[in-house]
Simulated assay, not measured.
Amino acid sequence: MAASIDPLVVGRVIGDVVDMYVPSVTMNVYFGSKHVTNGCDIKPSIASNPPRVTISGHPHQLYTLVMTDPDAPSPSEPSMREWVHWIVTDIPGGTGPTQGNLSCFFLII
Score class of each variant (00 low, 15 high):
Thr54Leu: 11
Ile109Trp: 10
Val84Asn: 09
Ser45Thr: 11
Gly96Pro: 02
Ser48Arg: 14
Pro78Glu: 00
Val84Gln: 09
Met1Lys: 12
Trp83Pro: 03
Asn101Ser: 08
Val53Gly: 05
Lys43Asp: 10
Lys34Gln: 06
Ala3Trp: 07
Ile46Ala: 12
Asn28Gln: 03
Phe106Thr: 06
Pro92Gln: 00
Ser48Gly: 08
Asp16Cys: 10
Lys43Glu: 09
Arg81Thr: 03
Gly11Pro: 02
Ile91Arg: 05
Phe106Lys: 11
Asp19Trp: 10
Thr54Asp: 07
His58Tyr: 05
Met80Cys: 06
Met67Leu: 13
Asp41Met: 14
Ser24Leu: 07
Pro70Phe: 15
Thr98Met: 06
His85Pro: 00
Trp86Gly: 01
Thr89Ile: 01
Met1Glu: 08
Gly57Arg: 09
Thr95Ile: 00
Cys104Asp: 06
Ala2Thr: 02
Val66Lys: 14
Met20Lys: 09
Trp83Asn: 05
Ser48Trp: 08
Ile108Val: 12
Leu107Arg: 11
Gly15Phe: 02
Glu82Asp: 03
His85Phe: 12
Val29Gln: 04
Lys43Gln: 14
Ile109Phe: 13
Pro59Ser: 05
Ile42Lys: 14
Val53Ser: 07
Met27Gln: 03
Gly93Ala: 01
Val17Asn: 05
Gly96Asn: 03
Asn49Ala: 14
Ile46Val: 04
Ser103Cys: 06
Arg52Gln: 12
Phe106Gln: 09
Gly15Asp: 02
Tyr30Arg: 09
Ile91Asp: 01
Asp41Cys: 12
Tyr63Cys: 04
Pro51Gln: 08
Leu62Ala: 10
Gly15Thr: 07
Pro92Trp: 00
Asp71Lys: 14
Gly39Pro: 13
